[in-house]
């Protein structure tokens, strides 16, 4: 058990695994996203109430889902950073924060554009939208805080604490549509129930969510590798890696 734990924490070991995983992640992501989005845009039936504007769901839900999911992953990595001081956990937080920021922005933006024809307004200060905006600020705050502190270890701990405090926002986002009266519709997918939409709608949606997950996996691997290279520049294995690639 501890051996696996130590191995997982080794940047060199992760670097090798990521290199092998990345082509599969990218291929899977592009295939699933292409099928899911084309299906959703052109072949899924029109919604009886919202018409064609509902087709935004095929990018809105995956972005919003990932935005929260990435934050939970970051918070988990934050705990690992604080308790076990594992370098790789900190590398993860640093590498994926900008990805989370972009995903949150996409969820807010596509939501606003969807809101105009559906609710008649781009923006309203309702619970779901406001808590999502706070998530955007949390991502921005984590990135800014990391850049503001020069010492790598202090920065890692400070960012981990910020991310952990911010985790309180996640259940607020999730349950906001149930706790308060909001304009936002309730969750599309629930683990315990069958989706309320027909299969021609939820299958492409599920494919897009999975596709975006894989794409996030690819981005996380790539960005973590970059961060590892930058941090471990002077080590023997990085030297061997970069010189071998030049010769090959």
């Amino acid at each position: 058990m501890w051996q696996i734990f130590h191995k997982l924490g080794s940047p060199k070991w992760f670097f090798g695994i990521a290199t092998r995983l990345m082509p599969w992640l990218l291929a899977g992501a592009l295939a699933l996203l292409a099928v899911g989005l084309v299906w959703g845009l052109a072949f899924a039936p029109k919604d009886y109430l919202q018409g064609n504007s509902y087709r935004i769901i095929f990018i809105h839900v995956p972005s919003a889902f990932l935005a929260q999911s990435v934050y939970i992953m970051m918070a988990t990595a934050g705990v690992v950073t604080l308790v076990w001081r594992m370098k790789l956990a900190d590398v993860f937080v640093k590498a994926v924060a900008p990805v989370g920021l972009v995903l949150t922005f996409l969820a807010l933006f596509t939501g606003a554009v969807w809101g105009k024809p559906t609710w008649g307004t781009w923006w309203i200060w309702d619970a779901r939208l406001t808590s999502m905006l706070i998530l955007l600020f949390l991502y921005g705050g984590a990135i800014a805080l990391d850049r503001a502190i020069n010492d790598e270890k202090s920065a890692a701990r400070a960012v981990a604490v910020l991310v952990l405090v911010g985790v309180v926002n996640i259940p607020i986002i999730k349950y906001s549509v149930e706790w308060w009266n909001t304009l936002h519709q309730p969750a599309t997918f629930k683990l315990t129930e069958k989706p309320s939409m027909p299969a021609e709608m939820w299958v492409p949606l599920l494919l897009s969510v999975l596709g975006l997950y894989l794409l996030f996996g690819w981005l996380a691997c790539l960005r973590m590798q970059t961060e590892i290279l930058a941090r471990e520049q002077r080590t023997r294995w990085v030297k061997e890696h970069v010189l071998a690639r030049r010769a090959g």
Binding site: L37, L41, K46, G51, N52, S53, R55, I56, I59, H60, S63, P98, V99, V102, F105, L106, F109, T110, V113, W114, K116, P117, L215, W218, L219, L222, R223, T226
Partner: peptide, 27 residues
Amino acid sequence: MDGHGPYVWVCYGVFVVLIAGMMLWSW
């Protein structure tokens, strides 16, 4: 899309540009 075209296409456009941009920037 029965008048919803601009909304739908703007969303898909921004999505593709930002995701592809993120991939390219990271690469």
